[in-house]
Design a protein around this nucleic acid. Sequence first.
DNA 1: CTGAAAGCGCTAACAT
DNA 2: ATGTTAGCGCTTTCAG
Lengths: 359, 359
Amino acid sequence: MSVTIYDIARQAGVSSSTVARVLRGATKGDRKDSAQRAAHIRRIADQLGYRPNLRARSFSEQRTKGLGLLYTDDGWVFEGVNDKVVRGLVTELRKHGHHLTLVPIDEQGEWKEVVLGGHVDGCLTFQYLPEPVRQGIREVGLPCVLLGDNSDPDVPQIVVDDYGGSYAATRHLISLGHRRIALFVHNSVKPHCSIGERRSGYEAAMHDHQLTPEFWHTSESDVMDVLLRGADRPTGLLCYSDLEATLIAHAMWQYGLKIPQHLSLVGFNDKFATEFMTPPLTTVGFDANRIGELGAQLIIRTLAGELAETNGDNTARTFQIKTKLIVRGSTSPPESNDGPRRPAAMSMRGSVDTPSRGD
Amino acid sequence: MSVTIYDIARQAGVSSSTVARVLRGATKGDRKDSAQRAAHIRRIADQLGYRPNLRARSFSEQRTKGLGLLYTDDGWVFEGVNDKVVRGLVTELRKHGHHLTLVPIDEQGEWKEVVLGGHVDGCLTFQYLPEPVRQGIREVGLPCVLLGDNSDPDVPQIVVDDYGGSYAATRHLISLGHRRIALFVHNSVKPHCSIGERRSGYEAAMHDHQLTPEFWHTSESDVMDVLLRGADRPTGLLCYSDLEATLIAHAMWQYGLKIPQHLSLVGFNDKFATEFMTPPLTTVGFDANRIGELGAQLIIRTLAGELAETNGDNTARTFQIKTKLIVRGSTSPPESNDGPRRPAAMSMRGSVDTPSRGD
DNA sequence: CTGAAAGCGCTAACAT
DNA sequence: ATGTTAGCGCTTTCAG
């Protein structure tokens, strides 16, 4: 079929190992005659259109130069700013001659075949690593890096400073004069370490200012029920992510209510569209691209054995991405009026309960 | 290192080929004794934690079960609704035991190593396929499928019915009573077949109603200049994608202008957030997930040799994804007033020219 | 149905 | 520096 080093060797009248060496540049070219020969070999390889067979090389070298990106939830991989993570990852990996394979983790365990069968030299896991997966990876000793996840303290990892970002966002609202500020996590959000971190940052900021935190793990309509209660409502809403902020901004608009006049709204992640919301969303941003970039470097250094585990001390292999509060138009000092009331014509169906104070 | 079929063979007292056959289920199990032996072998394999070495298998079978997703522009791969395409692709590929590797096409030609070096059995190209890449793929005879691209009539492909979607959107505006309707393509948009298709659909609808098309290939600020001209302006704006619509919606808001009162706005793609814009965006949607799904099936059938080229007739290998106009709040009959004027206090710097009528 | 053996193409240790 | 040789682990004829 295709050209092999044997074909070249035959034409050049040398052995296949000479061809192999020349083609990978492993000959110094000290002696003049061998330099000529090398040039000859290269010319023939060129003419024949030789291209090293990666399958053979992988087999021989026992590595593929491929990394797997493991993720449990399709919906998350490229959502929000996560696409930037992937792009940073791919780009940086390429610089080191590696490539990335997408590996959704399925119930049937087909991910095992690829990941544990040696199709990849290592893996990066996204957001969340189920226990069976962790175990499988550990059993075969596959190098692994956690992206946006700190669930395994022994594995190199990159996380976002969710606590700090959340604290800063809350403090921003407080400094504007808000006293009742709630944190809203949509009930469709899957468990993730960032929820706890953002909540902690929020609660810390509230406590530091003698304010009472209100944590809402519920739906946007439940939130709206509270926000339509008139004076007895928060004037500031910190959202777990830009998604919640988008939903609330939309619901407010539906009720004819204004942001930030009736509610100061803060998102998290600074995904692209937030800048163009009306009004533009105040949110917490971070360099998502950097997560991928750092992740690539981490896994590559791990592969190179440069990141040996240091006796339970994982600090040298843990990186935190800084966050930055981006103040835009969705936050302002609270208005002194009674706040919005539910328009009679638009009353919502069902009861108007306080959102559940889920965990 | 890890367990091989030889280890199992030794323990079971059989030959390695027997192990291999049993483990891939190539023994019928007719005779009782061999069925027992097979069970024995499987048990040992289980105990030893045997896992087929994919690198060896790839080498032997001369295929990897990997497909490459080729793309030229990082920014496009997961943008808008493209993430759905990728998800559909990965999901469907998995059902057939294949996996996907991301291959950005770089200037240095490193993509060649992976794609032409046999690390993947075939490839899918995204949006746009540069000529050198097309050539390289053709030379090595690598199976290929075009996703959202019709630049090579000889290759199996999946495209969106951009023409139809654009026609329907334009007709929608016309039926609302709009007479001056422009098509806006942001000047940052890279060349792509959809631009021409959407333009054609728009122009056809305009012509069919004796209206004059206005094609704007420019920046959002140039568009705003025109939209602020008072009565002498379009009342309807069809956008190449939801991105343009987002930018315009934002700019309108900045000037204190209302959608749809001052301008009816239509997007394209129906990306997630458009539903929650204020007002929700009328846009053209399609099943992006289906593109990936179909693409996976196409490439797999190509690999299986089921899609031999039929003498220049590519119709049997060309699929079109239908579009659907999604009417939301950003379109309404035009107002009868003079239209918005530039607020004196907010005049923009620079001249107020008509946007260039780029090709 | 089973075992022996060849082969997939490249790398690397070893001897020259 | 070059040639020889022995793997890498699995699949697949081909005899038996």
